[in-house]
Simulated scan of single mutants.
Amino acid sequence: KGSVILFTWTNFLLDDSYSFLGLENPLIISKDTNRKDSALDSRAIQDIASYDRLLPVILEYNKQAIKLDFDKSFFPCQVCFGEKLGSQCIKFLDCDHVYCKSCMRDYFNVQINEGNVKGLICPYDKCETQAHPCQVQELVNQEVFAKYDRMLLMTSLDQMVDVVYCPRPACQYPVSVDKESNFGNCPSCRYVFCILCQLVYHGLSPCKIKSDGLQKLRDEYNNADEKTKKLLEKRYGKQTIEAAVAECLTKDWLDQFSKTCPSCGASIQKIDGCNKMTCMKCRAHFCWLCEEYLPRNNPYSHYNTLNSPCRNKLFEGVNEFDDEDDLMWM
């Protein structure tokens, strides 16, 4: 106030400097440094190596100025509610929420040690802004950051549809594959495998199914829509899927209606008669109730012995029975 000269220069710099210097845009400086124009002051021309690098330099200087201003200001931490100097705080880049470094250091360490690398988000309610890796590196020690960096890489690879892992347990190296092919070749251990069934590459032959995957395949096929069923049939072969479904149905039926012979392991179905069973395969005797092996010379003693769990249960659960055991060997 009262400074006439300073006021005049301030207005000139704000309103007339661009036209006076012959600049059409404040961020674009003309490359024509040899033009003879009386309206252009020679002091407005800078001799720089590359005009293309001028804008990044200006933006970087602006970033540093903002950081310097941030470090000198005070901010309330949204976690501990203490007022801290900006140099003791971090600001999430996308949402501008500010927290003290002490609170965020504890927060980052807990999330990383629990394996939740995607959980390093702004603690503000309903905010989903992720912490930048450089902010994480600034707050945690080298060992924790190495763990974070490794898990972040693994998470990123898991989200890539054209990357799978080598199925060898001792390798697990990420392998880039072609979307149109089932062929995978590990660059680390040179293992050539099928990316669908994880077994040795079998060319155009249908994928082989492991015994413990039959139930899963049957459930997936039965619950799938027509499009998914076609994909499964193309992957495993229609005959393979039908055989898997039939085998699983047979296994379910055997688990529900049959018992295993304790001598040879054959599946036995009881149709009628008493609980003393005779295996038609190995002719061994066993009890239908407790599946205990019965002696050949006197199998019925099992139902007469005082300490036997099946005492007096020879005909338990039988409404109508014959003198001979009726059974079926599966």
Rank of each mutant, 00 (worst) to 15 (best):
A244G: 04
C274N: 09
S156V: 05
W329K: 09
C282F: 05
L6K: 15
E247R: 12
Y124E: 13
G119T: 03
D32L: 02
F74E: 11
Q198S: 06
L152M: 03
E143H: 15
T155E: 10
C279M: 01
S176V: 03
Y99P: 07
C264W: 13
P56Y: 07
K63Y: 00
A39I: 11
L6D: 11
T305E: 13
S188E: 02
F286A: 08
Q239R: 12
D255I: 01
C171N: 04
G82S: 10
M328A: 14
L6E: 06
S205N: 09
P309Y: 06
L249D: 05
A131T: 09
D94T: 05
E233P: 02
N312W: 09
E114H: 01
C89N: 01
E138P: 13
S258R: 10
C290A: 06
D252N: 04
I195K: 13
W288A: 14
E138C: 11
T228Q: 11
E324N: 04
G82P: 06
F74K: 12
K101W: 04
P174C: 02
R53M: 10
K270H: 11
P299S: 03
E324V: 09
P187T: 00
N116C: 01
Y300E: 03
P309T: 12
V245P: 00
D272K: 14
I45S: 14
Q88E: 08
D125R: 06
N319T: 12
V192W: 01
D322A: 10
Q137G: 07
F193T: 01
K234S: 03
K281D: 00
D158N: 15
T33I: 14
L93D: 09
D326H: 11
K208V: 09
I268N: 10
E220A: 15
I112M: 04
L13Q: 03
K1Y: 15
G273H: 01
C282S: 06
C89Y: 02
C264A: 08
F20C: 07
L55A: 15
E220L: 15
D37R: 01
P123D: 06
P133V: 05
V175H: 07
K208D: 07
Q88C: 03
V192M: 00
L196Q: 00
E60W: 12
F315Y: 03
F183W: 09
F286D: 02
D149L: 08
L54N: 00
S50K: 01
Q130F: 14
Y300V: 15
L85P: 03
R168Q: 14
M280F: 14
D272Q: 15
D71W: 10
S188K: 05
R296E: 14
V318S: 04
N182S: 03
F183N: 11
L23R: 08
Y51G: 02
K227Q: 05
D252T: 00
L14R: 07
G22F: 03
F193S: 03
D272C: 13
C166G: 06
N185T: 00
G213N: 00
D272L: 05
S17Q: 06
S87T: 05
G317F: 10
K31Q: 12
P26R: 04
Q130G: 06
K234G: 08
L153D: 13
K281Y: 03
K72R: 12
C127K: 04
K276C: 15
E180R: 05
D16N: 10
T250C: 14
K72L: 08
S211G: 09
Q46G: 11
F257W: 02
Y148M: 12
I45M: 09
I268Y: 11
C264D: 11
K118D: 11
E242Q: 08
